[in-house]
Amino acid sequence: MATMPVMADAFKNLINPATVAAMAQHLGRVSAHFDHDAFVARALPDLDGLEFKARAMQLADALEQALPADFSLASQALVNALGPPGQGDDLSGLRTGDQGLAGWALWPMGEFIARHGLADPARGLQALHAMTQRFSAEFAIRPFILAHPQLTFETLARWVHDPSAHVRRLVSEGSRPRLPWGLQLKPLIADPSPTLALLAALQDDPSAYVRRSVANHLNDIAKDHPARVAEWLQRHLPDASDNRRALLRHASRTLIKQGDAAVLTAWGLGAELHGQAALRIGPARIRLGEAVELSLTLRSTAAAAQALVVDYVVHHVKAGGSTSPKVFKGWRVQLAAGEQRLLSRRHKVTPITTRTYHAGWHRVQAQVNGRVVAEAGFELGVD
């Protein structure tokens, strides 16, 4: 669970009354100290009316009512109620069954550990080590990083060698500075140094699941410390295996889109276009929900082929009349000597929840290897 999916109604129903019943059954089976009736009475009321995260938090509240106050007893009960660990890279098929709990039932269980394990962090981390192999503990481990950084990073340094890919992935995913839907780790946003040795140890992990997390973690760092990622590429890209190159390219995606000169140079894409570029956009005016066609003509005047990353930037009009640029991925082009190439893309201006569109002239810039080479625009009407 690298990111939290969109909260559709069907998705939130993954935590439901059957989840409550299964948790009550398995926790009651393994612990004489678990109060079955108190758990159900706190977990079920109005559950169907709650959104997804609220459901998980209500079940965590119910665990607080039903588990013993002694954290050692409570955490042991949660661990003993778990089903068999997941094998391989994929946890999506894990479900609670006769042998114990797995899947989404573990979100509220991890939340309980995050709330109550900080007073006994070694035991709390041990519980998360078990839980992450049946679901994920990427959210629950983050309070431990903030409250007990030395102990937690010493633990993570051991876990990079764990036989479970799910534990190794937790090392990277749980310590991502800007994990989507997770608690931001502001000390690591300010200084990502504590995680760098962990990422170096994991970037050649045999599991694609782990390597994908490392790429996303490095991309998080790139948003605040682009020079750190450029330096990482200078050290780790030469003579890299195919798997590492794929990881590092994914880690570079934000900085490549932004046209970061050092990162483009590391990938052999730092040179400016030797030639001409012309951008045409039609129609000249559209309404919200319609599309324009972008046509970019590149003509090489070079004597050798050119490796080009071609993106485009739409400058969206804001309420006060100023504009805000948004980079969109375009094309990767090998432009031969003297070649003329036409690139086209349909760009639809669709209402989305994260942006309010305003009427006006929307400037569009084509950029090659991070440098603007051509410009045009279109008029947007929103009434």
Rank of each mutant, 00 (worst) to 15 (best):
W181D: 01
A165F: 09
A302T: 02
G259H: 11
S300Y: 10
S31F: 15
A278F: 07
R169F: 08
E64A: 15
K326N: 09
H358S: 09
A200P: 00
A261Y: 04
L308D: 07
R228H: 06
I221H: 05
A230H: 14
T155M: 00
I286C: 12
I256Q: 08
R134M: 00
H358P: 01
K318W: 12
P180M: 02
A74P: 14
D383Q: 11
G268I: 13
D9C: 01
P108L: 10
D191V: 01
I352G: 15
V160L: 01
S207D: 05
T19D: 01
G100S: 03
N243I: 03
G377I: 13
N216C: 09
V333I: 09
G377C: 10
D242Y: 06
D61F: 05
L273G: 15
T19F: 07
L335G: 04
A127P: 02
P238I: 06
A200Y: 04
Q367T: 08
V229M: 07
S92D: 07
R341H: 13
R346T: 15
V372N: 08
L233M: 12
D224S: 15
A230R: 14
M7E: 12
A251Q: 13
H274S: 15
D35Q: 15
T353G: 15
W331F: 14
H316A: 13
T354P: 13
V382R: 06
E375T: 15
G289P: 08
Q25F: 14
L14C: 08
L179K: 06
L59D: 00
L91S: 08
V210N: 05
A197V: 03
